Simulated scan of single mutants.
Amino acid sequence: MAKTEIKKTLNLTFPRLEPYRTVGDFLKSKDELHSVQLPAFQWDKPRQDPDLYLTEARRTYASIVEALERRREFYKEERKSLDQQWDNLLQLEKDLRENFVKLSSFIKSNEDKRARAIERCKEDHKLCEERDNDIKKIKENIVLLQQIKEEMDKEIRLHILYEKYLNFVVGDSMDFRNAIDVIDRFESLITTKQELGLRQQSYFDHLENAKNQTSRMADENTFRILGLNTIVAGLRSRYKNASSNSMKWERIVWSIKKNALQKYKEITEVKLACRNAYLLMCRRKSETPKISESDFESQLNYIKKTLQELKTVQGEATAINKKTFSSMKGEVSKGSRKK
């Protein structure tokens, strides 16, 4: 209801006239309002009662509260409308920014297109100039070819006798069908001749290279053979010296082997003698042989020890014999004296 009242108060209708035309009516209505005298009633007179002031204050407060509520409702609606307008402004700003971006990209693309168009125009202009130059060159070539054609026609007129001769040859020969076959045969023969000449030249080159290589190899092998002959002569002399040395050393080896065989026989005999002596000593001493047959050192030590014992026994026996002989000699001397 407050919204409708506010809208009614806001949506006033009045004639759309210029202010200077309505000033007279306004002043006239104001004079008429002051000239009207309202009747004075008793209850309309103000009283000097505190309740009157309280009631007036309450009425003022109530009207103010009601006006405040209406204003708050009004401002809530206005806030919604302002928020909506703000959103619309933001959307418009966004659209405007996007439009600016699109416009900027469009301007850039237009600039690129313009630059490409200018470059293409330059290329087209350059291409046109090149085509004009090509056309000029082609025209010059056409003129040159026409001159060449005229010269060729002259040459053909000069060589028509040869054509007639070729046609005459073709007519008399069964191998050719027309003059072109004769020319092809001639060209093929010329080509074959050139190929054979090149092949012969290559063969000559190969033969020359082979001859040079053979002579070079012969020279190299001659020096190599001379060197090998020298080496063979040295080796033969070394072989003779080695043969003589080998005969000498073979004789020495043979004599060494002979002496070694003699020594081996002597050693074998000594070993047998040593063994026999050991066995004999053991038999004489009535002992069982404990030393193995291959342990010659122990056998020799045993023989040495036995000989030392025999030497000791012989010394003692000699001393006893001397004492006995001296005692017997003294007794013989005493008996002779007694006689």
Rank of each mutant, 00 (worst) to 15 (best):
K8Q: 11
T9E: 05
L10K: 05
T13E: 14
L17E: 09
R21H: 03
D25F: 06
D25W: 06
F26V: 15
F26P: 00
L27M: 08
K28F: 04
K28L: 14
E32F: 01
L33N: 08
L33F: 11
H34T: 15
W43F: 08
P50M: 07
Y53P: 00
L54A: 08
L54G: 02
E56L: 10
A57T: 04
T60W: 03
R70L: 11
Y75W: 03
E78G: 01
D83P: 00
W86T: 14
Q91P: 00
Q91T: 12
L96M: 12
K108D: 06
A115N: 07
K122W: 09
E130I: 15
K137G: 04
E150K: 04
E155Y: 12
I160D: 09
L166T: 03
F168M: 08
V169D: 02
M174V: 12
N178I: 11
D181M: 07
S215Y: 13
M217L: 14
R224W: 01
L226P: 00
K240T: 13
S244V: 15
S246Y: 07
W249C: 02
K257G: 02
E266A: 11
L280R: 08
C282I: 05
P289S: 05
K290N: 05
I291Y: 00
E297Y: 07
S298I: 06
I303Q: 00
K304L: 09
L307W: 00
Q308A: 07
L310F: 03
K311H: 02
K311G: 03
G315I: 13
E316Y: 05
E316G: 02
T324Y: 08
S327K: 08
R337Q: 04
